[in-house]
Amino acid sequence: MTIIWFLVILFCLIMYIVFDGYDLGIGVGTLFERVPERKRHMIELVATGWDGNETWLILLAVGLWGGFPLAFGVILPHLYLPLIIALFALIVRGGSIELISQTENPPQILTWAFGIASLVAAFAQGFALGELTSTAHVVDGVYTGSEGGFPWYPIVLGVTVAFGYTALGYAYLKLKSEGELRVSAARRGGVVAVVTVVLGAVSLISIAGTAAPLNLATPGRALTFWGLIVFALVGAVTAAVNFRRRTDSHPTADLLPFAGLVVTTVATLLAFTVSHYPLLVPPSLTVNSAVGPYNTMVFLLVGIGLNIPLIIFYHWFAHRTFGGKFRVHETPQARTSILTGASNER
């Protein structure tokens, strides 16, 4: 049961990183987009889905809380600052995005707030993941403090994640947009994807210097780990190549960058899990020492586990409704202003 629930939580983490990753990434992209219409287009695209994407983060947190209560009580205070900053950013982002898409001429500052908050959230999340490799002191199941020191590894990972999300964002844009927006997303996305791969390699090497180095002691672990890393590379190369391609010669060229990057993300996360399991936080917080009581696990697996197919369906349904290329002039807001002109502005 411990392992099943651990896998459920891992699944939530993956869903969150892939889905909120693309929408945070598009947010970062708006910072570098000068044409106002394209900016608006990008924001509207995020507006249709961000809420559902972030719900995976909530399930991740609550799943950890119910299933591994001790870990919840230790990890969160341990990652206090980066998580608080990520939350600041997510609040600002959620507020600004809906204010932008509900008003006809949103003030510039909102668009900037949206872009910057996306970038900060991405970086802070990477930073938080990186902090998981530093030591947390636990006495009798109670968190009592963290090991100090200059957090260079979290910074590396923060930058990597910010780039990775941005690459996902451009890949998603290429999939969902047309015309010039698609061209520019393809051009920039390719570059960002390559940078991400390089940064990923740097993080992989430098993790050896942290309190949670890779544990590849048994051949089985080592083999799985390197296998997954190869997968990740293949995904990234596919993505980088297909960012450049055009759909007229390669019909799948719009889909493959996103698909490739998803493979990369999933494989990387799995690789890191394999190389650390069952350790959650060094030195000694493990899955087994943190797991909740039997009655709780049964309730979780039945109540929440059985609902997971359903929530995947909702998630799919929401994305499907806005399937195909997303055209911004179809949104009611924009249409209103076209048809009524200035007459309603009083």
């Binding site: 909530i58 119910g66 209560p69 919840f72 009580g73 009655n295 109540g303 929440i304």
Partner: peptide, 17 residues
């Protein structure tokens, strides 16, 4: 969180799903 998690965690988990 650590002490009440086994009870409140699953309840809020049901809320999430």
């Amino acid at each position: 969180g650590a002490k009440t998690g086994p009870i409140i965690g699953p309840i809020i988990g049901m809320e999430v799903v």
